[in-house]
Design a protein around this nucleic acid. Structure first.
Length: 420
RNA sequence: GCGGAGAUGGCCCAGCCUGGUAAGGCGAUAGACUGCUAAUCUAUUGUCCGUAAGGACACGGGGGUUCAAAUCCCCCUCUCCGCGCCA
């Protein structure tokens, strides 16, 4: 959510940002109209309430006709206030709705572009692997080794779900433990939050109202299945004023994530796009002034995971049109999957500046007794499991059909060197 | 799920029965005072509208009654205690 004062003071800056991000600018004009009317109405109701308060306090000292007259007068003022307050609440809703649907302002360093073609490859690491045999795709490998079972996943839950079996399940668990341990060493505190979240949380981080159709909703309880650990972890501190001395706060969490993937029909084969997947996530609460440096270090922390796994990857700096709407700046890490010669988005590291903090009311006091301010929040996957699994299976596959276990994972698999 | 008790400012806590500008304490910050510290005194310590002066709002959330609601009425959420159920 943007600062209403900033929008009033510099609407053209906001208009530029909305255009760069390919959103409809009418949302800005809608806000300005509702906001102007809202402020006038608030001013008028405040004056009326002042009058009512003043006279109401005089009434106990009055008697007879004068008292009756004042009471009648105030009854009418109260009626007027009630009508006006109703109008204010309508205006406030449209104001707020416009605010909730307005994207964050991109950082000046973000390239302007309409779609993924505007993204910039900011770094490429480790050469893609050359094969002297025909590389298989991960779903073939998984089925041949009987470690990924799509048929039974579909039986138990439906299309888009899968079962990890044997060394596949063990590899998944090894990855989770390896990543959590690494992030722990990097200074992140491990948490395991609820996997089900309420409306306030999902609004707080910005998935609602825009992404409602992408999440699983439990109507009976009014709750949502976690779409990304960013939601419960960031909302740990919703409606809190943090102690400045405890910033930056760094968290890491392993959490299953759920996406409905409504309306997406391509890319359904395999485990690269599924309804339920595990992810290890990093979340930072930081002071505003250093937040873009914190983004760079967050990216490095995520890259460390990939480097340790010795997988070929590249880092993209996303352009204005391709960033998710709550980010101010975002890097994607893509892993190379040689089976299908594809680049898979495996991590997304974003600085949301004060956008989420303002929605979720996460503040801190820069100095004792000074006015509290919004923190900046950041989030990075470190990293998404299925696509990492794809990259491992495809990059570490051997001609005989086996898969070598990456060296850093062996301690997590009782020293096992190969699968198959 | 049932019964009971609660939720008041950054924190603690009074006020509720019997409606009339949210009392007191703690902590924090600034100033005053004192060789230093402590103590003491004073001020500040939530949100919104407003350039400001000023004003409004805020007693878990939402409705209602009333000239006026922390206080009375209704609905909801959460916490604690007991009972029930349960991996």
């Amino acid at each position: 959510m943007l600062d209403a004062n900033l929008i009033r003071d510099d609407p053209e800056k906001v208009r530029r940002a909305i255009i760069d991000r390919c959103y409809d600018v009418s949302i800005l004009d809608g806000f300005l109209a509702a906001d102007g009317e809202w402020r006038q109405a608030v001013d008028r109701t405040n004056r009326l309430k002042q009058e009512r308060n003043r006279v109401s306090h005089q009434i106990p000292g009055l008697s007879g006709e004068e008292k009756t007259a004042k009471i009648e007068e105030m009854r009418q003022v109260s009626e007027e206030i009630k009508t006006l307050d109703g109008r204010i609440s309508e205006l406030d809703s449209s104001r707020r709705e416009a605010l909730l649907n307005m994207p964050n302002l991109p950082h000046y360093s973000v390239p302007v572009g309409a779609d993924e073609n505007g993204n910039i490859i900011s770094k490429t690491c480790m050469k893609e692997r050359d094969f002297d045999f025909e590389a298989k795709e991960h779903f073939e490998i998984g089925e041949d080794l009987d470690i990924i079972d799509f048929v039974r996943g579909a039986k138990v839950a439906g299309s888009g779900f899968y079962v990890l079996k044997g060394d596949g399940a063990r590899l998944e668990r090894a990855l989770i433990n390896f990543m959590l341990d690494l992030h722990h060493q990097q200074g992140y505190r491990e948490v395991f939050p609820p996997i089900i979240v309420n409306d306030e949380s999902v609004i707080g981080t910005g998935q609602l109202p825009k992404m409602a159709d992408d999440m699983y909703h439990m109507e009976k309880d009014g709750l949502w299945l976690n779409p990304t650990a960013e939601v419960p972890v960031t909302n740990l501190h919703r409606d809190e004023i943090l102690d400045a001395s405890e910033l930056p706060l760094l968290y890491t969490a392993y959490l299953p994530s759920f996406r409905r993937e409504a309306g997406r029909h391509s890319d359904t084969r395999g485990i690269a796009r599924v309804h339920q997947f595990n992810k290890v996530e990093m979340v930072k609460f930081v002071r505003p002034e250093g937040s873009f440096d914190e983004l760079e270090s967050l990216l490095l922390d995520a890259e460390t995971v990939i480097k340790a796994l010795e997988l070929p990857y590249r880092v993209l700096l996303l352009c204005t049109g391709d960033m998710s709407f709550h980010a101010s700046k975002c890097y994607d890490i893509e892993l190379h999957a040689p089976g299908g010669d594809r680049w898979l988005e495996t991590s997304s590291c974003s600085n949301f500046t004060d956008f989420q903090a303002r929605r979720a009311m996460v503040k801190y006091r820069p100095e004792p007794h000074l006015k509290s301010e919004f923190v900046h929040t950041l989030n990075g996957s470190g990293v998404a499991l299925p696509r990492t699994m794809v990259a491992i299976l495809e990059n570490y596959q051997n001609e005989d059909g086996t898969v070598t276990v990456p060296e850093v994972l062996r301690p997590y698999m009782q020293g096992q060197r190969t699968i198959g």
